[in-house]
Amino acid sequence: MSQSNEIILKVNDLKMYFPVTRGLLRKKVAEIKAVDGVSFELKKGETLGLVGESGCGKTTVGRCVSRLYQPTGGEIIFEGEDIAALPEKDLKRIRRKVSLIFQDPYSSLDPRQSAGSIVGEPLIVHKITKDKIDYHRRVETLFQLVGLDPALMNRYPHEFSGGQRQRIGIARSLASNPSLIICDEPVSALDVSIQAQIINLLLDLKEAGETELTYIFIAHDLSVVKHISDRVAVMYLGRIVELTTPQELYENPLHPYTQALLSAVPVPDPEIEEKRERIILEGEVPSPLNPPSGCALHQRCPIAKPECREVIPPLSDRGGGHLVACIRA
């Protein structure tokens, strides 16, 4: 996979707290710490997987990076510029460079818009095309790029299947020639046999594009993330707990949560399954409204010690860029 050493995105101590308000005057009564100190770097052309269970903050990270949310704190340095606090009016040029692919192919396309006009929308918003003919040609190329017949441009979303709709969404995300695409669970709503088509398409687009594409791939399915990513970050309750290459993650998971997550995903081979060790975590993910003290996992962790309750473990390098946030590992 082509990958330069140029850093395209550097996220530093990102924090996103959502206020919980009550009453007519919207008094703030609590805070949901959806993301609480997330840092990572992304090289140009790289794919970073963000994996975790619902409520771990992976989607929020994606929405902060694309500046759909205004982060509470931290830096988001995209192509050398800190965009974390950029005001709304300066965001348009960032929106052109960072695009999103959504999870639900049904609700992410406007039902009253034709497929062609959905895909062409960014071209109009950013005034990319010179004239009608240029616009039409661009949309046509985008359709072909994602494997759709340009003859389908006048059709409406409900006429397409889930996989085809997701292709329309991908074409839209490519229209403005972005350098970073945030894929938020792009395959989890699709049927098994269609998922592979979309995963391959995303991989192919990376090699085909004129500008080098960088992906942040958000998913709860570890096997999909592992398949598509160059590096994987495992998130738990608003923090990254482990970050390394997929190979290393599978062969040498250090964080107890990663180990449990890996063991929870069954392999479609009964003979391997018979031999696999199963680590079942007790209980459920605590609420981010009231997170546990110290390491967020300590109540469920099989190897927790009393000090885990007090110290928030920092993300530290255990060699070869394998980062882990655990004082016991």
Partner: peptide, 16 residues
């Protein structure tokens, strides 16, 4: 052939 597996690396998926 179309599902990504935890125990394999870098194999291209063959979609249906």
């Amino acid at each position: 052939n179309s599902v990504p597996r935890l125990d394999t690396v870098g194999k291209r998926l063959v979609p249906i």
